[in-house]
Deep mutational scan, measured.
Amino acid sequence: AQVHVDGVTYDFDNPEEAEKFAREMAKRKGGTVEVKNDQWHVE
Rank of each mutant, 00 (worst) to 15 (best):
E43D: 10
D6I: 02
A1P: 11
D11K: 12
D11F: 15
V33L: 09
G7R: 01
E19P: 00
F12I: 01
R23K: 13
R23Y: 13
E17R: 00
E16R: 09
P15W: 14
E17I: 05
V33F: 05
G7P: 00
R23V: 09
E16G: 06
F21V: 03
D38N: 15
A26M: 03
G7M: 01
A26Q: 07
F21K: 01
E43Q: 14
N14T: 14
A22T: 03
A1Y: 15
K29A: 12
N37H: 10
D38G: 15
E19M: 04
A26R: 03
E17W: 04
H41Q: 08
E19W: 04
K36G: 07
V42Y: 06
V3P: 00
M25W: 02
K36E: 10
Q2W: 08
K27V: 09
A18Q: 01
E16N: 06
H4W: 13
D11W: 15
E43A: 13
P15S: 12
V8Y: 11
A1D: 04
E24F: 01
K27G: 08
K29V: 15
R28K: 14
G30Q: 08
E43V: 15
Q2A: 08
R28A: 14
E24G: 02
V5M: 12
G30I: 05
Y10Q: 01
V3F: 02
F21H: 03
V5C: 15
G30S: 08
V5A: 05
T9N: 04
Q2Y: 07
H4Q: 08
E17K: 02
F12P: 01
H41E: 08
R23C: 15
G31H: 12
H4E: 09
R28T: 12
Q2I: 09
W40I: 10
K29D: 09
E17F: 02
F12S: 00
Y10H: 04
H4Y: 12
Q39D: 08
F12A: 01
G7K: 02
V42R: 05
A26E: 09
K36C: 15
V8G: 02
A18G: 00
E16L: 08
E19S: 00
K20L: 07
A18K: 02
K36P: 04
G7H: 04
D38W: 03
H4F: 13
M25K: 00
E24V: 00
D11H: 14
R23Q: 13
F21D: 03
Y10A: 01
E19T: 00
E43T: 15
E19H: 02
F12G: 01
E19D: 08
T9Q: 09
G7T: 01
N37R: 07
V3R: 00
K36W: 13
F21A: 04
V42H: 06
V33Q: 04
Y10N: 01
A26H: 04
D38T: 08
E43L: 15
P15K: 12
V35W: 14
K20Q: 11
Y10R: 03
A26L: 02
E43W: 13
T9G: 02
H4I: 15
F21E: 00
V42I: 09
K36N: 10
E24M: 07
E43H: 14
A1V: 13
Q2G: 02
N14R: 03
R28S: 13
G31I: 11
T9E: 05
A26G: 05
D6L: 05
D13F: 03
P15D: 11
E16I: 10
T9H: 06
G30K: 08
H4P: 01
E24I: 03
Q2S: 12
G30H: 11
V33H: 04
T9F: 07
K29T: 15
Q39Y: 07
K29S: 14
Y10T: 02
D38C: 15
G31N: 06
T32N: 09
R28F: 07
N14E: 06
F12N: 00
F12D: 01
E43Y: 14
V3L: 03
E16Y: 10
Q39H: 11
V8L: 10
V5F: 12
A18S: 01
V8C: 15
P15T: 10
M25R: 01
Y10E: 01
Q2V: 10
K27S: 12
T32E: 08
E16A: 11
N14V: 03
K36Q: 11
A1T: 14
N14I: 03
D11T: 14
D6F: 10
D6T: 01
V35H: 12
T32H: 11
V8D: 05
Y10K: 02
H4N: 09
R23W: 12
D6R: 03
E19Y: 05
E34D: 10
W40H: 07
E24Y: 03
R23H: 13
K27I: 08
T32L: 09
K29M: 15
T9S: 07
E34G: 09
M25S: 04
E43R: 15
W40V: 06
E34K: 14
P15G: 08
V35P: 04
E17V: 03
H4D: 04
Y10W: 06
V8K: 11
V8H: 10
P15Q: 11
R28V: 13
K27A: 13
V33R: 04
A26S: 04
M25T: 07
E16D: 11
E19N: 02
A26P: 00
E19V: 00
A18M: 01
N37E: 09
T9P: 05
K29I: 15
D11R: 11
E19Q: 02
Q39E: 09
Q2N: 04
V35A: 06
F21M: 03
A22W: 07
K29Y: 15
N37I: 07
N14D: 14
R28G: 09
Q2F: 07
V5R: 02
D6P: 01
A22C: 13
D13N: 09
K27N: 09
A18T: 00
N14G: 07
R28M: 13
V8I: 12
V42T: 07
H41D: 06
K27F: 03
W40D: 06
F12Q: 00
V3K: 00
V42S: 05
V3E: 01
E19R: 01
M25L: 11
T9Y: 09
Q2K: 13
V42Q: 05
V42D: 04
D6V: 03
E24H: 02
K29E: 10
V33K: 04
T32W: 15
E34A: 13
Q39G: 15
Q39P: 05
Q39I: 14
G7I: 02
F21Q: 03
A26N: 04
Y10L: 04
F12R: 00
V3S: 00
Q39A: 12
K20I: 09
R28N: 11
E43G: 12
A26D: 03
G7W: 02
G7F: 01
D13K: 07
A22K: 06
E34M: 14
P15H: 11
N37Q: 09
E24N: 03
V42E: 06
Q39V: 14
G7E: 03
N14P: 00
D13I: 08
E24S: 03
D38R: 08
D6H: 06
Q2R: 14
P15I: 13
A22P: 00
K27E: 13
H41M: 10
M25Q: 11
D13Q: 08
N14L: 05
G30V: 05
G30W: 06
W40E: 06
A22F: 05
D11S: 13
H4G: 02
K29W: 14
K36D: 09
K36M: 10
V33T: 06
V5T: 02
E17A: 09
G31M: 12
D13S: 11
K27H: 07
R23F: 11
R28Q: 14
P15E: 11
N37L: 10
V35L: 13
V42N: 06
H41R: 10
N14Y: 05
T32G: 07
A18W: 01
A18H: 00
H41A: 09
Q2P: 02
T9K: 08
H4M: 12
R23G: 09
E34R: 15
D13Y: 03
K36L: 11
V35G: 10
T32Q: 09
H41S: 08
D11P: 08
G31F: 09
E34W: 14
E19L: 07
D11I: 14
Y10V: 04
M25I: 12
T32D: 06
V42L: 04
Q2L: 10
K36H: 13
E17P: 00
N37S: 07
V8P: 00
R28W: 06
E43F: 14
D13R: 01
A18F: 01
A18P: 00
F21Y: 05
A26T: 02
K29P: 05
A1N: 13
E17S: 05
G31V: 12
R28E: 12
A1S: 12
K20P: 00
R28H: 11
D11E: 13
N37Y: 10
H41C: 15
N14S: 14
F12V: 00
V8N: 07
V3N: 01
P15Y: 12
K36A: 09
N37P: 06
T32S: 10
G30T: 05
V8S: 04
A22D: 07
Q39K: 10
Y10G: 01
